[in-house]
């Protein structure tokens, strides 16, 4: 499933990142790499998704969150 479809308090793992090198470099530099465990903290319509990973609370805008493939536990 996509990160943008996860519900609040979902725990899971990032499985895939889809996009060009520029996009991949931006999301991985902030810590979102394939295989990293995460927790969805907030996911409201028309708002960036809030995820917690590597001890950091990160806001990721919706259209980018649609390009992150995740697996929930």
């Amino acid at each position: 499933m996509k990160l943008s479809e996860t519900k609040k308090d979902t725990h899971g793992k990032v499985m895939g990142i889809e996009g060009d090198a520029h996009f991949v470099s931006r999301v991985t530099a902030i810590g979102m790499t394939e295989g990293v465990p995460f927790q969805t903290v907030r996911n409201n319509k028309r708002m960036p998704v809030l995820v917690y990973l590597r001890e950091t609370l990160i806001a990721l805008n919706r259209s980018d969150a649609e390009r992150i493939e995740v697996e929930s536990e």
Binding site: P48, L50, T56, L57, I58, A59, L60, N61, S63
Partner: peptide
């Protein structure tokens, strides 16, 4: 680019 930022504690 879309927002990708940390919300610091």
């Amino acid at each position: 680019t879309g927002m990708i930022m940390e919300l610091p504690p």
